[in-house]
Every structure is written in C-alpha cells, then in structure tokens.
C-alpha cells in the first residue's frame, strides 16, 4: 500500500520512495526513508494534504508525493 491510502491511526513501514530529485532528498531529510515507521495522523479538512508522524515530527504531504511512498501496514497492539 502507499501512504495516501493509509487511514487515520495506521502505522506503515516504508519500503520504497519512488520519487526523484530534490523532493526525494527533502523527504529523506525529513525521515521518509525505507525502513522508517510512519503514523497516519489526519487529513486536511479538504482531504489533501495528509499529516504524517515521522521521526517524532509531524509532516504534511500532498497526494502527489504520498501516493509514491509505499510500505506495509504494521499490526500494532500496543496502542
């Protein structure tokens, strides 16, 4: 699945960031790296962008980018 498909409360472990160039760099800087765990926090009132929790910060991404970041859903029983 990709990050855009995530629902509020989902935890996703990133597998691949299929974006090139400066934007890729920026995403890596922010912690969207393969292996990182991302929480889906909430959608903007108009549905896009979506806020994610990654490496202890909240970052909002637009559909264009979040749809290209893929990973797998983690079953999390702790919370």
């Amino acid at each position: 699945m990709n990050l855009y498909e995530g629902n509020k409360g989902d935890r996703i472990r990133i597998k691949e960031v299929a974006i090139e160039g400066v934007m890729r760099r920026r995403l890596l800087d922010l912690g969207f790296v393969p292996g990182a765990v991302v929480d889906v926090l909430k959608k903007s009132p108009l549905g896009d962008p979506i806020a994610f929790r990654v490496s202890h910060t909240t970052i909002a991404l637009r559909k264009e980018e979040s749809i290209k970041i893929t990973g797998e859903l983690i079953q999390d029983d702790n919370e």
Binding site: D29, L30, G31, S55, H56, T57
Partner: peptide
C-alpha cells in the same frame, strides 16, 4: 530535543 533523531542529521 523533541525530535532529536531528525535533528541529528
């Protein structure tokens, strides 16, 4: 301090 991981980069 609240997001040290990213800041350490």
């Amino acid at each position: 301090a609240t997001s040290l991981e990213r800041n350490l980069n």
